[in-house]
Design a protein around this nucleic acid. Sequence first.
RNA 1: GGAGAGGUGGCCGAGUAGGUCGAAGGCAGCCGCCUGCUAAGCGGUUGUGGGGGUAAAACUUCACCCAGGGUUCGAAUCCCUGCCUCUCCGCCA
Length: 447
Amino acid sequence: MSCGVRELAKLLNSTLLNSLTFLGGFMLDARFIRENINVLKTALKKRGYEINLSEFIAFEQERLGLMQKAEELRNRRNVVSAEIGRLKKQGQGAEDLVKEMKGVSDRIKEIDEILKGIEEKTGQFLLNIPNIPHESVPIGKDETENIEVRRWGTPPEFDFEPLNHWDIAETLDIIDFERGAKIAGTRFTVMKGLGARLERALMNFMLDLNTSKGYKEIFPPILVSKECMTGTGQLPKFSDEIFRTVDPEFYLIPTAEVPVTNIHREEILAEELLPIYYTAYTPCFRREAGSYGKDVRGLIRQHQFNKVEIVKFTKPEDSYAELEKLTGDAEDILQKLGLPYRVIALCTADMGFSASKTYDIEAWLPGQQRYREISSCSNFEDFQARRANIRFKREGKKGTEFVHTLNGSALAIGRTVVAILENYQQKDGTVVVPEALRHYMGTDILK
RNA sequence: GGAGAGGUGGCCGAGUAGGUCGAAGGCAGCCGCCUGCUAAGCGGUUGUGGGGGUAAAACUUCACCCAGGGUUCGAAUCCCUGCCUCUCCGCCA
């Protein structure tokens, strides 16, 4: 029965976001919303999001009424203007009609002004509503209620006290934290020698593995427009977390998800193109505002880091199966690298704004004696597709539908470096290179 | 950065003294007919989003000729701004 609720809620969400006239040219089914307010409220409450729709609905009713009025007037204007043309052609005067139409046009302008104001308000309101969680997502109030789905591998045992990656890296002289700070400030690092090489090896290894599975390699722009950021859901709500250039205005991508998902913005895809699989290496940039005390040492939390991402566009009926496959593809990388990990299903309160369902993959870090996030795999259903207006057309069917978008890290490279250094460290301070990387590294040991 | 040209439907391409243009024509596609197969030929058809309407259709209406403003009774057609593309010059990895 929760399924029925879910379906309703989904439909409702669809309808809501449809009203972004200034984004995609959609309109909103106000009646449907009026009849289903409670469904939406309940669904979002699971996330801890309280929604107040009463003002919105009032605006909607007003908007619909005004729109109809304006359309009537436009129709009148179209008809009469044609008549005026006809009369003039026959050499007859039409002063009365012209005068009347002048009034009509002014009236239309007035109404349009009001409509614009309303649409601006409702549009902003809608852009700030998070996605509705999938029914399979555990309900919870914070991250303690996430659920561990499975584990792979066994944390290594050491006959010595395992070090943190920053200590290992310092000894090996492969990561220079101080000079990173000198050049750019805190949360920046310089990778050197085998460290730089390891970073590059991981990029290549991941891209090669992903492309061998049918993901098409993409190398996108790293500065993007505001529209892209809105399309994938980073804006307008999370401007604090993003770097921005001022003149001209660009946004530095926090993840390849942004440019890669927006590849198909404003497009209608042919059914046979789906599913589309992309993989992309990009640098990523994050402000990390509000995390001042966290992970101040080491590579875990940087303003700039490298990541290989995978992105999928699918038909709605396939997206959850694709999420499992996508997560599996990310896990495969860790398995090939021999890094122990666990998979976590995020609960309703811990999921990102745009996601319907998310699995985090956490790698074991001996230096911290705990699992840390190394990948996040999400199904956004049609949330991003609505914002970015990405649709597809079914063979032989009228109209279009929104695609579902998914993405996941495969993987975050900096954190993979951390996991390798800490899991493969040896008593003498050297680090064994995982089998799968030796070809890329040209060595089997970091020393 | 300087000087020009241009942005029309899936594609090509008309439309420039503003009026019945959602937009000629061609191609491609689809549906029929015809031909023993293929090609050619004939007829029809083919956009997106919204409102009203319907059980669903039919039907009706509004918007969309890069985007946003403006002029006008009326704009694909005129004016302004922005974005993008192309050519030439300069500069540069």
